[in-house]
């Protein structure tokens, strides 16, 4: 009895606060899902050349797959590069995470496929201050803008912020080999 009573009060408080945070999380996730549905509708109704994005499964709007066409006049040309977009529950306050799911060699793509560009970084965490706030993530950005940024990233790698050190080095020192590997990756994406 005595022991039980002692534990009763903190337990209730814990439960209440847990309930509260669960509810806040739920509203945030609902907001995110609403926003993502409208972005999806926009993407399907107004097609943008060379990009596709949409939820992988109808019952999870927080995980999308996307396709990005290799930009013309680059070794990526002709390839169709697939990636996943993982949205946080507080989207669009926080940016999504973009990860290639195909073989790709690029100075700004980590070996695990995660893309490293300024539009995917929240304005708060740039220790080097080399990215201006305007090109960072903010709620007025969108999936479409992210994918278009990735497309231009493919065309113009930034070898100063190398996410893949080997790729950066190869891009700088052995361009022919870099382009050869990229061309092979592009062919592979469409099964050739």
């Amino acid at each position: 009895m005595f022991i039980g009573q002692q534990h009763h009060a903190p337990n209730t408080i814990l439960k209440l606060s847990l309930n509260f945070s669960l509810q806040t999380a739920a509203t945030m996730a609902a907001k995110a899902a609403r926003r993502l549905l409208s972005e999806y509708r926009e993407l399907i109704n107004n097609e943008t050349d060379g990009i596709y994005a949409g939820p992988i499964s109808e019952d999870n709007f927080m995980l999308w797959e996307c396709l990005i066409a290799g930009p013309p006049d680059t070794p990526f040309e002709g390839g169709m590069f697939s990636a996943t977009l993982k949205f946080p529950d507080d989207y669009p306050l926080s940016p999504p995470e973009l990860k290639f799911t195909c073989e790709i060699l690029h100075p700004n793509v980590y070996p695990d496929g995660t893309v490293c560009i300024s539009i995917l970084h929240p304005p708060g965490d740039d220790p080097n201050m080399y990215e201006s706030a305007s090109e960072r993530w903010s709620p007025i950005q969108s999936v479409e803008k992210v994918l278009l940024s990735v497309m231009s990233m493919l065309a113009e790698p930034n070898d100063e912020s190398g996410a893949n050190v080997d790729a950066s080095k190869m891009f700088r020192d052995d361009r022919a080999r870099y382009e050869n590997i990229v061309r092979r990756c592009a062919r592979k994406t469409v099964g050739l």
């Binding site: 992988i56 590997i181 592979k188």
Partner: peptide
């Protein structure tokens, strides 16, 4: 969809170049 049945892709192709990312081994087709 992605999880389509009847597909047994060989995982981790060892011949891939050292620096290139190797995930998702099936082509889109």
């Amino acid at each position: 969809s992605l999880g389509g049945t009847g597909r047994s892709q060989a995982p981790a192709s060892s011949s891939s170049s050292s620096a290139a990312t190797t995930i998702g081994h099936s082509d889109l087709v």
